[in-house]
Write a protein that binds this DNA or RNA. Structure first.
Length: 617
RNA sequence: GCCCACGUGGCUCAGUGGUAGAGCGCUUCCUUGGUAAGGAAGAGGUCACCGGUUCAAUCCCGGUCGUGGGCUCCA
């Protein structure tokens, strides 16, 4: 079964990082007496530890070198890691004596709710920590130059913002100095592919204060990429039997009461416009205190509107599955600290669709949705992603508040979603308790070049919303029945998806997506007319071609357009003009070839229309 | 929103308690050049914004806004 397994704790790197975290904590407590401890686990590229500094004290990047120095002293001191197991009562007494309130809280939870009857402690030198281990034998086994403290960040105790905010110190940690250096270099290297940097260099988008944070403006280059993606979706969805719909950006509050987004989702929605139709003034005026005003919200999701489209006409089982698609623009009031380039924005164009299906169509439709993902991701050449199956948690004491509490619906829908994944032979992880409130989810996870994981596509099997909207179809037995709804968004949102495309290709887009597909470079002004003819020939084939008629030198022009990652450079001099040919220099290819203009145009057109992501001529 | 850092011409970044500089880009001129920077001249900044300290602030202090790294949440 292709379920992805989590990493082992006995991994030597895990032990080393975990032990270094203890060493760092010891160093921090020595420098800042009275500091309290939080958690300090290993992470993918090192470790962190959370601290609560004494009142009035804080820490910043400038303090890190001193802590590193202290850590090296501890490593040199060759402290032994000694494990001790204490029964519940003794363990609690021990922690109380340590005066570590966070550790105490966690220990109580482990004992009272986790059923632990003993807890383990690790001591190295003067430092004791409640910890399940394992650790290295002595600090001497730790690489003195294999770590680098690199960031200070705030982190709420237990990740809950109602709790106190701790100071987290992050460190990179690897087997040796060379590997740390290599990692830091890789991080620097990755920054060059960051979509924010390339987005600026390649004039794809801007985010301007005066428009609003999280509200990107698409420059012509970016708008072209959006159009190409929409064309791809339109064609693909047509082949898969979807119908397009279009719905408005703003909507009265009542729709969101029906859908259940109000009040549950309200904190993520822009506040409503309150509108009072003013007959005398012949327009609308904003109202504040008065209950007469109608409230309109910017839509945070497309599903309620699609449900209304479904409801607009009587439906028969013969109409199902009914697949309604829209690149709908939605707005979500994300907290300012969450915003990040194009990956986290407040206004976004979503590749959305809702599939209304009968129970016996569910499996095939889910599989078709998975196939659609595969088709798209193969087209783009994506390999580094995984599916995440989010289920409900029947053991959650608060499940009634978190989920529609209909166990038999959960059992049925989870089983069928997992079956679809299995039958499509996809790799996936299982995340209990992460489901949507109305059904299980399949998210598709990608990583940015800077290592952050994001959901690109989210898909849900919804057994609850159709009933809220009283959606029905007449079945063959004449009964009115409620359909299931599948939410799917394989291309996610334009914003996030294009961010990934920029990083995935390092800005060197496949020709079909490239804002400028071909640049014609005349060698001298004498060839301007021929260059324009070449350009116009290509434009006749709907190829985005331009002539560089600036008075820069040849070498300069070539350099400029390579820097802008234009897929095809066409050099035309006297010889080409005479022979009706072009000299082709492709991005990333050193050697060039001379080709007949018509032949070149045919090959380029084919590459674009087939949306090839490899350069094979 | 909260913690930490940062905010100098379009971009990348120097710099100083006495009101600013480079490279790239841009404009103009010369150059008509066969594949990753031809040459010259020029324009362009109330040093994010507001307030405070000071004889004097871009530089010091406070606040605001924005950006980046985290926490949480999510497409």
């Amino acid at each position: 079964m292709p379920v992805i397994e989590k990493q082992s704790k006995n991994d030597p790197l895990y032990k080393m990082r975990h032990s270094l975290a203890h060493v760092m904590a010891q160093a921090v407590v020595k420098h800042y007496p009275g500091t309290l401890l939080g958690f300090g686990p290993p992470v993918d590229d090192g470790f962190y530890y959370d601290f609560l500094f004494p009142e009035g004290q804080g820490i910043s990047d400038e303090d890190l070198p001193a802590i590193e120095k202290e850590m090296r002293k501890i490593i040199d001191a060759d402290q032994e890691f000694v494990r001790e197991d204490l029964g519940a009562a003794a363990a609690l007494a021990r922690i109380e004596q340590m005066q570590e309130p966070h550790k105490l809280e966690y220990a109580r939870e482990l004992i009272e709710q986790g059923g632990f009857d003993s807890l383990s402690f690790y001591t190295n030198g003067p430092f004791v920590d409640m910890c399940e281990g394992p650790h290295v034998e002595t600090t001497k086994a730790l690489p003195k130059d294999g770590f680098k403290l690199h960031a200070v960040a705030g982190a709420y105790w237990r990740g809950d913002e109602r709790n106190v905010m701790l100071s987290r110190i992050y460190a990179y940690a690897f087997e040796n100095r060379k590997k740390v250096k290599a990692h830091i270099r890789a991080v620097e290297e990755a920054k060059k592919r960051d979509h924010r940097k390339l987005g600026k260099e390649l004039s794809i988008f801007v985010i301007d204060d005066e428009v609003g944070k999280g509200l990107p403006l698409w420059l012509p280059n970016g708008a072209i990429i959006r159009q190409e993606l929409e064309a791809l979706a339109r064609e693909t969805e047509f082949r898969y039997g979807y119908y397009p719909v279009a719905t408005p950006h703003i909507t009265k509050d009542s729709l969101y009461w029906t859908s259940g987004h109000l009040p549950l989702y309200e904190q993520v929605m822009y506040p409503p416009m309150r509108i009072h139709e003013d007959a005398e003034a012949g327009g609308a005026t904003a109202e504040t205190g008065d209950g007469e005003a109608e409230k309109y919200y910017l839509k945070p999701m497309n599903c309620p509107h699609h449900h209304v489209v479904y409801r607009a006409e009587p439906r028969s089982y013969r109409d199902l599955p009914l697949r309604l698609a829209e690149y709908g623009t939605v707005y979500r009031f994300e907290r300012s600290g969450q915003l990040q380039g194009l990956t986290r924005v407040r206004g976004m164009g979503m590749n959305d669709a809702h599939l209304y299906v009968t129970p016996d169509q569910l499996l095939d439709e889910l599989k078709a949705v998975m196939e659609l993902h595969r088709e798209y991701y193969d087209l783009f050449g994506f390999g580094d992603y995984y599916m995440r199956l989010s289920l409900w948690d029947p053991d959650d004491p608060k499940r009634g508040a978190k989920y529609i509490d209909q166990p038999e619906d959960w059992e049925f829908s989870q089983k069928i979603v997992q079956q679809a994944l299995e039958e499509m032979d996809l790799d996936y992880t299982i995340e209990p308790g992460e489901a949507a409130f109305y059904g299980p989810k399949i998210d598709v996870q990608f990583r940015t070049v800077t290592g952050r994981e994001f959901t690109v596509s989210t898909n849900q099997l919804d057994f609850a919303q159709p009933a809220r909207f009283a959606l029905t179809y007449t079945d063959r037995d004449g009964e009115e029945k409620t359909p299931y709804c599948i939410h799917r968004a394989p291309l996610g949102t334009h914003e996030r998806f294009i961010a990934f495309l920029i990083e995935h290709y390092g800005g060197a887009f496949p020709t079909w997506l490239a804002p400028v597909q071909a640049i014609v470079i005349p060698i001298s002004d004498d060839q301007t007319a021929y260059a324009e003819k070449v350009r116009d020939t290509l434009r006749g084939d709907m190829i985005r071609a331009e002539v560089d008629s600036s008075d820069a030198s040849m070498g300069k022009k070539v350099r400029t357009h390579i820097t802008r990652k234009v897929p095809v450079l066409l050099i035309v001099g006297g010889r080409e003009a005479e022979e009706n040919t072009v000299t082709v220099r492709r991005y990333g290819v050193q050697e060039q070839k001379s080709m007949d203009l018509g032949t070149m145009a045919d090959m380029l057109r084919a590459e674009i229309s087939e949306r090839r992501h490899v350069r094979d001529w």
